[in-house]
Amino acid sequence: MSDPLVRLQNVSVQFDTRPVVERVNLTVHRGDIITIIGPNGAGKTTLIKAVLGLQSVTSGQVSLARNLVVGYVPQHLTLEATLPLSVRRFMLLSGQPRSRCEAALEKTGVGHLLHASVHHLSGGEKQRLLLARALARQPDLLVLDEPAQGVDINGQASLYNLIRQLRDELNCGVIMISHDLHLVMAATDKVICLNQHICCSGFPEDISHDPAFIETFGRPVAESLAVYHHRHNHRHDLHGNVVHGDTRGRDGEHQGCDHAHH
């Protein structure tokens, strides 16, 4: 296995004397999709900021691969409402070449919005724009904080499917924070349940049976996730539509698409 992109060793963060993150160990390699879940106030965003170098750690060590390029997708796009700003201009403000910006917009399915106003985009379009801005950096590591925030249920499934596709194409590592437990279980390789410390971690199909997960999220949530796991011979396109056909993964294994049923 290649050297890790990120390694956290016994990382703790305190605000004044209040522990926010305690003794967290985390390793991310190329090709990994790791999703961090947990209740509000669990320290998820603080942990992400430590990875990004935006938050100093109280103890422990954060090690990044040499010359690591990180693409960050924040939870919200907050802009001054009176500031006229097109999608094209917003992308160019990233400092990346125009050709790379336009290619990233095409890759995330919003290339047709090049001349649209950023203020008039839907929630899903804004998230795809933020993802494109991160991709224009040609990142080794994608860090996404609630990437499906403000996106409807079909758009969420489509967005998570897109993230998996990008992981495969770019061979990058992905760290996500999410509350969308059902969709996350279909989109990720490994789940880390954080409540200041790591309560439990593992494969999505196993995590719902873990006593620490049940204690954190409650038995009804855990039971719904356990029932939820079944396979379908289809996938979603970029617009959330079902596409039937081959769903083989990188290793030739059959990979289904899980769905929440309401």
Rank of each mutant, 00 (worst) to 15 (best):
His209Ala: 13
Ile207Val: 15
Asp237Phe: 03
Ser208Leu: 03
Phe217Tyr: 07
Arg235Trp: 06
Ile214Cys: 15
Val227Trp: 07
Ala226Gln: 10
Leu225Asn: 00
Asp210Trp: 07
Ala212Thr: 03
Gly218Ser: 09
Pro220Gly: 01
His229Cys: 02
Pro211Thr: 09
Asp237Ala: 04
His230Ile: 04
Thr216Arg: 10
Ile214Thr: 11
Glu205Gly: 01
Tyr228Met: 11
Leu238Phe: 04
Ile207Gln: 14
Val227Tyr: 09
Glu223Trp: 00
His232Thr: 05
Glu223Asn: 01
Tyr228Phe: 09
Arg235Tyr: 05
Ala226Met: 04
Glu215Met: 09
Phe213Gln: 11
Leu238Gln: 08
Asp206Gln: 13
Ile207Gly: 14
Val221Cys: 08
Phe217Met: 07
Ala222Asp: 09
Val227Cys: 06
Tyr228Lys: 01
His236Ser: 07
Ala222Glu: 09
Pro211Val: 10
Ala226Ile: 02
His230Ser: 10
Arg231Tyr: 06
Val227Thr: 05
Arg235Thr: 15
Glu223Gln: 05
Ser208Arg: 02
Ala212Met: 12
Phe217Cys: 07
Ser208Val: 03
Pro220Val: 00
Leu225Trp: 00
Phe217Val: 04
Glu205Pro: 01
Glu205Trp: 01
His229Gly: 01
Pro211Met: 12
Asp206Glu: 15
Glu215Pro: 10
His229Met: 04
Ser208Met: 06
His229Phe: 03
Leu238Met: 08
Thr216Tyr: 10
His229Ile: 01
His236Leu: 14
Glu205Asp: 10
Ile214Leu: 11
Asn233Lys: 11
Pro211Leu: 13
Ala222Pro: 11
Leu238Glu: 05
His236Ile: 02
Ile207Ser: 14
Phe217Lys: 00
Asp206Asn: 14
Arg219Asp: 12
Arg235Glu: 11
Gly218Thr: 05
Arg219Leu: 14
Pro211Asp: 14
Phe217Thr: 01
Leu238Lys: 05
His229Asn: 03
His239Arg: 13
His236Met: 10
His232Met: 03
Thr216Ser: 14
Ala222Arg: 02
Glu215Asn: 14
His209Glu: 12
His232Trp: 02
Glu223Ile: 01
Ala222Phe: 06
His239Ala: 13
His232Leu: 04
Ile214Glu: 15
His232Ile: 02
Asn233Ser: 14
Asp206Val: 05
Tyr228Leu: 10
His209Tyr: 10
Asp210Leu: 10
Ile207Tyr: 14
Asn233Gln: 14
Pro211Cys: 13
Asp206Ser: 13
Ala226Asp: 03
Ala222Ile: 03
Ile214Tyr: 09
Ser224Pro: 06
Ser208Pro: 07
Arg235Phe: 08
Pro211Gly: 12
Ile207Leu: 15
Asn233Cys: 13
Asp206Lys: 08
Leu225Ile: 02
Gly218Trp: 09
His239Gly: 05
His229Asp: 01
Tyr228His: 06
